[in-house]
Design a protein around this nucleic acid. Structure first.
Length: 256
DNA sequence: TTCCAGGCGTATC
DNA sequence: GATACGCATGGA
């Protein structure tokens, strides 16, 4: 597999790789050193890997994916300062903004986020990562819809009761009842309804998929940590980004 | 050993 | 619509 290598100029306060990659929105990344990371991801239907190294002036990128992946994945077309300016005036948000400068919501592959966050329910991050690694090994890359049809195999991977959810998802795609691509053009409301029709997908998982997979920045996932944290206030048009800052604050970033 | 994890389906009221 | 409970698994 060919690799491309390049340098992207950007300051850490506009893109903080460690915060982005280890705040629970993606599960495929490992830290090699202080500011050096390696991981896998899906881009344009293919499983790829990348090696990233952050410096004060920018990021060295080496990846099997097309060069456009980096700009897309880290949402670099969006102005972080402008997004932050829409956040509500709240002491927790303010603290999180100071503590996690350069934290961005990622633009991940919709299928990858859907499968990953179905696995995430009532699960811990270490085990989510473990299961995804096992699936990658079993299927030679991120699982495709047809890979999910073998429930017994999924159970040997440690999916437990979630194996049934994934098999159901595989069948929904095979039958045409669910098509991840169709959600791109739907309204937030319709896309949400479509996701909720899937067995094993509730409001939390659907919100994560909409936010991290479909770029719906207002989607606001509430998990056990956010329940302790979030207040009944309006988090604005980038509520999902505000949520990520709150989540990072609630958990810290050293839990992986 | 027990408790918990980026929840959800189902039953019951 | 709200609430209670079971659920596979492995790390803490």
């Amino acid at each position: 597999m060919s690799e491309t290598e390049f340098f992207h100029e950007i300051r850490p306060d506009q893109l903080n790789l460690f915060a982005c990659l280890f705040c629970g929105q993606s599960f495929g990344w490992d830290a090699l050193g202080q500011n050096e990371f390696q991981g896998w991801f899906v881009f344009e239907g293919q499983t790829h890997t990348a090696h990233l190294k952050q410096t004060p002036k920018g990021v060295f990128v080496r990846t099997s994916a097309p060069r456009s992946w980096f700009f897309r994945y880290f949402n670099l077309g969006l102005d972080l300062n402008q997004i932050i300016s829409t956040f509500p005036n709240d002491p927790d948000i303010a603290l999180a903004l100071r503590r996690f400068k350069g934290l961005r919501v990622l633009a991940q592959d919709p299928w990858e986020t859907l499968v990953s966050f179905i696995i995430s329910q009532n699960n811990n991050i270490a085990r989510i990562r473990l299961i995804l690694r096992r699936m990658m090994r079993a299927f030679g890359g991120f699982p495709r819809p047809e890979d999910l049809l073998d429930t017994p195999l999924l159970k040997t991977i440690g999916l437990g009761y979630r194996a049934e959810y994934l098999t159901n998802l595989g069948r929904a795609v095979a039958s045409g009842r669910f098509n991840p691509e169709e959600l791109r053009d739907m309204s937030d409301r319709d896309a949400m309804r479509c996701l909720l029709s899937l067995h094993g997908v509730g409001p939390k998982v659907a919100s994560c998929v909409l936010l991290y997979g479909y770029g719906r920045h207002g989607a606001f996932p509430v998990d056990v940590w956010l329940k302790r944290m979030a207040k009944p206030i309006d988090y604005g048009p980038y509520a999902g980004w505000a949520q990520l800052y709150l989540y990072a604050l609630a958990r810290g970033l050293d839990h992986l």
